[in-house]
Amino acid sequence: MVSARSVAVRARSGNVTRRLLTGLAAAALASATALTPSTAHATPPAHSAAVPAHALTGYWQNFNNGATVQKLKDVDDAYDIIAVAFADATGQPGAVTFSLDPAVGYASADDFKADIKAKQAAGKSVVVSVGGEKGTVSVNDEASAKNFADSINKLMDEYGFNGVDIDLENGLNSTYMAQALKAVHAAHSDVVVTMAPQTVDMQSPQNEYFKTALAIKDFLTVVNMQYYNSGSMNGCDGKVYAQGSVDFLTGLACIQLEGGLDPSQVGIGVPASSRAAGGGYVAPSVVNAALDCLTQGSNCGSFKPSKTYPGLRGAMTWSTNWDASNGNEFAGQVGSHVHALP
């Protein structure tokens, strides 16, 4: 995540509320691009309830890097969206696959699928995340876009994932990634699509990540930008803000909010503890102050947005595992604050 989600992650190879279309599946297919996924459904499978208006997102680690090892069922109930990290590249350009790391402790894939269903029964969404700092998935032409869409659709059908998280940190082509995601949406009209760009990727609507988000705005769930491992960045007022401050969170969120995304498509992504990232960790109280500033105009630092965004989606953390290692502080404090937003 800017250089990684965390120092430990470097060691691995690593508005819309979710829309339920009211038309026929054929209408969803017609709205997509020329890509036609081979796994399209006449009736998208029903997985879980819609993502709540204010949601907490957490990444679940399918590996052991020193944080608390969890099964999905162990993830704190405060998390509304759980991003399973990560899908892996295959030998086919754009295609991804997923397999459980034995270190996580599942006896079988069926046990993992059962945990996904249990989370969904509790109203949660579970998505498969693509990328990470060392993710090598590349979607840069028609063929790789189709391969990406087909493989994501297959994983959604096989595991019951609600959707996909885009966490590609080594380049992204907005034209073909948007095509791929539209093809996924055509096959699963209730798909949950989340994104976790680095701060530099969202400095301008002309950047490829930002352009991708805008291209799928009709069904994009949330962009949880990584407000860490980045150093200082420009805010929407043109001033430079240092990471680790409330102004960094609010001043950079403002770029997305004023750059075309709906407030419901903007979330604040931060590390769950100082061990989870190389820099940019802030206490839960700072995240909550930023949420108050953006949604209500209170508890701001030196930067105060010219207007409020009460529909702001919420917050994200890397990771549920590091949060568990830290006593689930993020889930308890930020999660309760997100869910209490008006």
Rank of each mutant, 00 (worst) to 15 (best):
A109D: 15
Y176H: 09
G171H: 11
P284Q: 05
K182G: 02
L24N: 14
F161A: 08
V69F: 06
S319Y: 06
E142G: 10
L100I: 09
I216S: 04
F303Q: 01
G132Y: 00
N321M: 10
G91D: 13
K304P: 02
S319C: 11
K113T: 12
P271H: 05
Q179W: 07
A186R: 00
M225G: 13
G332M: 00
Y227G: 01
A32P: 01
A289Y: 00
C254H: 08
A149F: 02
V192Y: 05
P52C: 11
S174F: 10
M316S: 09
A55F: 04
G251Y: 03
W322R: 05
T317V: 14
G327H: 04
S6D: 10
D201S: 11
V222S: 02
S325N: 10
L21H: 12
S306Y: 09
A283Q: 11
P305M: 05
Q92C: 08
V286Y: 00
L172E: 03
T308A: 11
A34N: 11
T317R: 00
E142F: 09
A289D: 15
T36A: 15
F303W: 05
V7G: 15
F86D: 03
S13N: 12
D77Q: 13
A50I: 09
G260I: 11
L341R: 06
D77Y: 05
K182Q: 15
S125L: 05
D74S: 07
A42L: 15
T250L: 08
P284R: 01
S48N: 07
D218Y: 02
N234R: 08
K217H: 12
D80C: 08
A196F: 06
S13H: 11
G335P: 00
E142D: 15
G327N: 08
N173G: 08
S274R: 11
M195P: 02
L257F: 01
Y59A: 06
V282E: 05
Q243C: 14
G327D: 00
Q179N: 12
G280E: 02
L220Y: 01
H185T: 07
S302W: 08
S306V: 11
F86A: 06
G231K: 07
L214C: 08
G123H: 09
Y227D: 03
A11I: 11
A283H: 09
P205N: 06
G132L: 01
S151G: 11
G260T: 13
G335V: 01
N153G: 15
A11D: 13
E258H: 10
V2S: 13
T39E: 11
R5A: 13
P52A: 08
V128W: 02
L155T: 07
D190T: 13
V69E: 02
L257W: 03
K182E: 03
V193N: 07
A196M: 09
V266F: 02
A196P: 06
G280Y: 01
A331P: 00
T17F: 10
T36Q: 14
D247P: 09
I255A: 08
T36I: 12
S6A: 14
G311L: 13
F210D: 04
C293P: 00
T199G: 06
K117T: 12
Q206R: 13
A103P: 05
G311A: 15
L220E: 03
N299T: 04
T136G: 12
S48P: 03
G94L: 10
T33R: 13
T39L: 15
T320G: 06
V270D: 04
A340S: 10
F148C: 10
W318C: 06
Q243H: 10
